[in-house]
Design a protein around this nucleic acid. Sequence first.
DNA 1: CAAGAGATCATCT
DNA 2: GATGATCTCTTGA
Length: 187
Amino acid sequence: MRLLPSFFDRSTIDCCHDLLGCFLTHKNKTTKYQGIITEVEAYIGPNDRASHASHGRTPRTETMFSSAGVWYVYLIYGMYYCLNIVTEQKNYPAAILIRGIIPTKGIEKMKKNRHTDNYKNLTNGPGKICQAFAIDKTFNNQSIKKSNLYLEKNENKPNYQILTGPRIGVDYAGEDKNKPWRFFIKI
DNA sequence: CAAGAGATCATCT
DNA sequence: GATGATCTCTTGA
């Protein structure tokens, strides 16, 4: 069952907890990619110095100010894409970065896309996820309701513990770098 | 296994 | 002109 935009129209932290364990799915002409989300990070509000939106509205960050349930995709370090889902009300900039996934479908194509046979190295990082799932900027600002990139509820979520920690790669963010806004499933 | 360097370009100042 | 919500490769213990 596809998650609808309304699922994300609420506290970003709550969304993070509920998003863990759900499926990410991308269906194109040739391949169905799918995996279970195991790690995410929250970027919340105009004053979060780790967030792109802390520098105000710009052409790039405009997506973060959209209403909930659209993809925010951007290029980082000139080489890799990162996939986020926008949360909370319109004009309040917030999103969740998807950082870790366990692949369940399309694994052979993921290996090709990633140029490796190492299963454990397919989707354990935000840039790797986008490469494995063939996600690029064309998905930016698309609604999860209509896009062929979408999220699904997992009816058989196993019991697991959710751990938290500081976000990765945001040393520039001053005090905000210590916020425990990284969430991951204990294996 | 850990640490360091380099790749590479859209975005914003 | 500077920088980054990353990754891979190399080096060395």
